[in-house]
Simulated assay, not measured.
Amino acid sequence: MSALRIAMQQYLSLRRKLGFKLINVETTLRSFITFAEKEAACHVTTDLILRWLNLSTAKEPATLANRFNMVRRFAIWRSAADDRTQVPPKNLLP
């Protein structure tokens, strides 16, 4: 199991303990982590997130922005433990 997948599980567990349901977030993060693992990525980068979004079947800006923000929040959390993690700018997508 990759370090990113373990981090994702810890992130989801923590947020659930805080009362969040995270149904769509979990699905989105699992998709992103699977892509990251296929790319042999060890940490989250802005480029990795954008390449993952480009593969999305969803093309509506609101849907892509929502997915981006879910992964961005994970990146913010992950950056506390991994200083190689890049947190993309908040308004990178419309």
Rank of each mutant, 00 (worst) to 15 (best):
T46D: 04
L50D: 02
M70G: 07
W52R: 07
N54F: 05
N54C: 07
I49E: 03
A62N: 13
L48Y: 07
A40D: 13
R67Y: 10
N54T: 07
C42R: 15
L64H: 00
P61Y: 05
V71E: 01
A58G: 06
N66R: 13
A58E: 03
V44N: 08
A40L: 10
F68H: 05
N54E: 05
V44K: 09
A62K: 15
T45Y: 06
K38E: 15
V71G: 05
T57Q: 13
E60M: 11
T57V: 07
T63S: 13
E39S: 14
S56R: 14
L48C: 07
C42W: 09
A40W: 08
L53F: 02
E37K: 06
P61R: 13
L64E: 02
H43P: 07
R67E: 00
L64F: 02
I49W: 06
K38C: 10
N54P: 00
D47V: 11
C42P: 14
N66A: 11
T57G: 12
W52G: 06
L50A: 03
L48P: 07
L55N: 11
L64W: 02
T45K: 09
W52N: 04
T45F: 04
A41I: 11
A41D: 10
L50H: 08
P61E: 10
E39F: 08
L50I: 13
V71Y: 04
L50M: 15
W52L: 06
E60F: 03
K59E: 03
A65F: 01
V44I: 14
S56E: 02
T57C: 08
H43M: 05
M70Y: 09
V44Y: 10
K59N: 13
E37C: 09
P61S: 10
L64R: 10
L55Q: 14
A65S: 09
L64Q: 03
A58P: 00
I49Q: 05
S56Y: 01
T46Y: 02
N69A: 07
N54S: 10
K38F: 11
L53K: 00
R51I: 00
H43N: 13
T46F: 00
A65W: 01
T46E: 09
P61L: 05
A62R: 15
E60L: 11
V71T: 05
L48M: 05
C42D: 14
T46Q: 11
A41P: 14
L55I: 02
L50Q: 10
L53N: 01
M70I: 14
V44H: 08
N66D: 02
E39R: 15
L50N: 05
